[in-house]
Design a protein around this nucleic acid. Structure first.
Lengths: 215, 215
DNA sequence: AATTCGGCATGAACACCGTTCATTTTCTTG
DNA sequence: CAAGAAAATGAACGGTGTTCATGCCGAATT
């Protein structure tokens, strides 16, 4: 058991910890590039160690699992996705904001398809709980829809709005996920653009009606 | 290369082929049970051979791959799903039929969650084409929506209707998939029921408006 | 400064995976 | 019944993630 409690008075008391986080970051960087280029299945412990210039076992001094490393990579992907959604968020009309975010989501999925797929392909071992920091990162995604929905449905309370945000996001995700999935249908890009527009038009019409009913 | 072209005049000329298909069916049966109980990851070649009472190599006399076996298992799952959707298809009002099918889809996903997940978790090796027989089985799913949509939108042509069916199915699938995905949100069952209802109400309202516009 | 000592990086080794193929076994055939 | 072809077998292969006895190195002590 290391002497964590009494760090010595040296200036580089926890130099070991520094090198640890340095290695962590380097491994996450490389894993991120690997996943972006070859998908989750392209991530191999030995290749990763070779690319990072460290020993195979060193990976397991920085992370408990490869799963933990993958969650870190996915967290970064989520952060990039948030940035992409925010960039699309023109706070003009609520309806247009929702459409812009849906289009941005499709655009991101296309541009970073392997990384985006990794968000949903990865499963932790059965019984392993999702780390709180990852759940938070993910929940922030849905909250992006909150402001437009509040504008569109002022009568709804916050929890109902959060549930609706989740539902709308899931619906858009479903269309995009199955549309990009070549195994399911191989939808031509133009058709997918069009069908996403159809979905949004249908949902928007429904929201308008909902809004009218609540008034 | 076996002498397929000239089966001999014996009564059990192709006894080998019979035993082959017999073994195939037995392996699919066992794999189906395994996937239903433990998910795709629970399917191991050695366990499968042991359960079937055959040699490890015998699996590869019946199937080229484990992937091929998995596709067969998934095809059976698709067939059961089709049955479940058909059972829910009360051909009364189109809107109610669509809702009933969505509810039946959620019910099936809950009752056979590991098998249902296997439909979407499984990926064939990169570059491998999807067998035509599997693509057909999958396309039949969407076609279930065609009749209600035709009733609801008589103006739309068949290809547009097929695309719309695909879109609606995908949206419902997205809500159910992310709702059942504990990694994403752990939606309480009652809330998921409710949100599926919300989605259907929104989409139905949109379809009504679409229908009105087309007339 | 020499010497001990403790903690950490190391990569060979382990358990397990899907897949193959030399060997054995089985069956058909002349 | 013998000879040959055909098919089943499971040990072996190459690959995976993970572990842990080993040796190294830097710090503390005499």
């Amino acid at each position: 058991m290391p002497n964590w409690e009494t760090p010595l008075n040296e200036k580089n008391a926890d130099a070991g910890a520094d090198r640890r986080t340095q290695l962590r970051d380097r491994l996450i960087d490389i894993a991120q590039e690997t996943v972006a280029a070859q998908g989750l299945d392209g991530l191999k412990a030995r290749d990763l160690a070779a690319a990072a210039g460290c020993a195979l076992g060193a990976i397991y001094t920085a992370f408990h699992d490869l799963d933990e490393l993958i969650l870190r990579v996915n967290a970064r992907t989520l952060a990039r996705l948030e940035l992409a959604l925010d960039a699309a968020f023109v706070d003009a009309e609520a309806e247009q904001a929702l459409e812009a975010m849906a289009r941005a989501y499709l655009s991101f999925a296309r541009k970073e398809e392997p990384s985006w797929r990794a968000l949903f392909e990865h499963r932790l071992p059965p019984g392993a709980p999702v780390p709180a920091w990852y759940a938070d990162d993910r929940n922030r995604l849905f909250s992006r829809l909150d402001a437009p929905l509040a504008q569109l449905l002022p009568g709804k309370d916050a929890t109902a709005r959060a549930a609706l945000a989740h539902t709308l996001f899931s619906a858009v995700h479903g269309v995009i996920a199955l549309g990009l999935e070549e195994k399911i249908a191989e939808t031509p890009p133009k058709l997918l653009d069009e069908q996403l527009g159809v979905l949004i038009r249908l949902l928007a019409a429904g929201l308008m009606m909902e809004s009218a009913r609540l008034i």
